[in-house]
């Protein structure tokens, strides 16, 4: 069971969202300023909401009523944004190994190799993180986030800055990986083919949920108008 219920006020903006995360992939869709990134930061444990309850895979990560707030590092949540914040002073290998320090050295090396292979980045292993192209950086950021085998991977428009070929290749590799994903986007074309559940967010409120194509087909014209496409 994976459920999210959050109420958070920030200045004049109120985020009041409730939805479940039971599908393997869930797309969080909505216009800029809908509260998508704020919601992700709350899920990740980087921002504390005034009220809320977050349960992922039956494990309660946050329950303000009971005073439960699992710290970000113990939530088993990976988070990759449009600007991958790699550790610039470390190599690609060291970046990916950062979150699996608890493993033995051989297990750690194996896990890093597995991640490099998954994202076709073996050749980058010993390169400095600051000497990578945009697409390479994003592959490494995803590999680093997935290395500790998180329960949930939060992706905040991770492919928005990449060329179409790189984006398609990375998305294909991600879809092959067994992890629950919450994917944020405001690009209809990008998410249209995803086998995912959809959560529509508008001005801080969930306006629709359900199978992606079903929800989008019904709301397509209104959404295109809302997004200014």
């Amino acid at each position: 069971m994976s459920e999210v219920r959050i109420r958070h006020r920030q200045g004049g903006f109120v985020l009041d969202a409730e939805f479940s995360l039971d599908g393997a992939w869930t797309v969080l869709f909505g216009p800029s300023g809908a509260g998508k990134s704020t919601l992700l930061r709350i899920l990740a444990g980087l921002l504390a909401p005034q009220e809320g309850r977050i349960t992922i895979g039956g494990r309660t990560l946050l329950d303000t009523a009971q005073g439960i707030a699992v710290p970000a590092g113990r939530r088993s949540i990976g988070f990759v944004t449009q600007q991958p914040a790699l550790f610039p002073h470390l190599t690609v290998r060291q970046n990916i190994a950062f979150g699996v320090r608890h493993l033995s050295a051989p297990a750690r090396a194996g896990r890093v190799h597995e991640m490099l292979h998954l994202f076709g980045a073996e050749a980058l292993a010993d390169r400095g993180a600051k000497n990578l192209s945009g697409g390479e950086r994003q592959r490494v950021a995803l590999a680093r986030a997935l290395a500790p085998a998180p329960q949930l991977l939060l992706l905040d428009e991770p492919l928005a800055a990449l060329d179409a070929a790189s984006a398609k290749d990375i998305l294909r590799r991600l879809l092959d990986f067994e992890v629950r994903v919450l994917y944020v986007s405001h690009d209809l074309a990008e998410i249209w083919r995803m086998p995912a559940e959809l959560v529509l967010l508008d001005r801080g409120r969930v306006t629709a949920t359900g199978p992606l194509r079903q929800v989008l087909a019904a709301d397509r014209e209104r959404l295109l108008e809302q997004l200014g496409s």
């Binding site: 980087l46 590092g73 988070f79 914040a85 790699l86 550790f87 950062f98 979150g99 320090r101 986030a145």
Partner: peptide, 27 residues
Amino acid sequence: VDPAIVDQARLLGAGRLRILREILLPL
């Protein structure tokens, strides 16, 4: 130091001392 870098270190399980030693001081 970019706060997003520190956030990533936190998400990957680093405590305050490790963030200081392995991220902030080198950067």
